[in-house]
Amino acid sequence: MNPTLEVAHLDLASPHDVICENLSLCVRPGEVWGILGPNGVGKSTLLKTLAGLRPAPEGSSIRLDGQPLERWARRARARRMAILLQDNEPGLPLTVFETALLGRHPHLGLWGRPHHGDLRRTLSALRIAGLLGQRQSPSQALSAGESRRLSVALILAQDPDLYLLDEPTTQLDLHYQRRLFEHFLGLARKRGKAIVMALHDPTAAIRFTTRVLLLLGGGRTVVGDSRDCLTPEHLTALYGTDVVAAHSPRGLVFDVF
């Protein structure tokens, strides 16, 4: 199958450290990728670069559906690829429904009038995020976890082929962590969507991802299958703290405490 996202020879640096050197990877439809690494190693910067929100450095190539990122028309690109950012400006309040409807923006015509299908998709995204009952509330009235779910609903309404998710489950309770992870896994398996998410929980990573990219700092990276790469040794090296693996009835779990 043709890759959805193809990265070749990517060198990225933050002001104080090298994030990756000569990174190449290939995200195919139906794959779920996890990006793991310590705080400040550059996961968000990498995701924003993949999303085209930051310019890719000279000599590197990032292709979406075989076409270089910068050659895509903006709206067409937004129909193929969505990014869930880590923080959103509070701004001025739209209602919860209106906010989720913004995800349909790249699909709307010139006058921006949503059709029935757009409204239906938005409602279904809100249902998945568990916000259907609050759709008339101002978005500012939501709690931190609910706001996070609203951001997820927005990109679900956007309905792209590639989801870039920056820590999608921070601030969510256990129920919603599982519900959203399972939803994204289902999108990959049943509808062939490609998903790349930055994560902090190695247990979630081994349960819900097929491939991982480990950012070790200093530009060192590991790319491979989740089962091969997510080992106590790798994770201990990754976080600089002792990680042990144990078997639970549901599979492997990683324990640090």
Partner: peptide, 14 residues
């Protein structure tokens, strides 16, 4: 409306 969510979100929405 899209701009209300901030510049980066607006860019990612085309």
């Amino acid at each position: 409306n899209v701009l209300l969510r901030g510049v980066e979100t607006a860019q990612s929405l085309g």
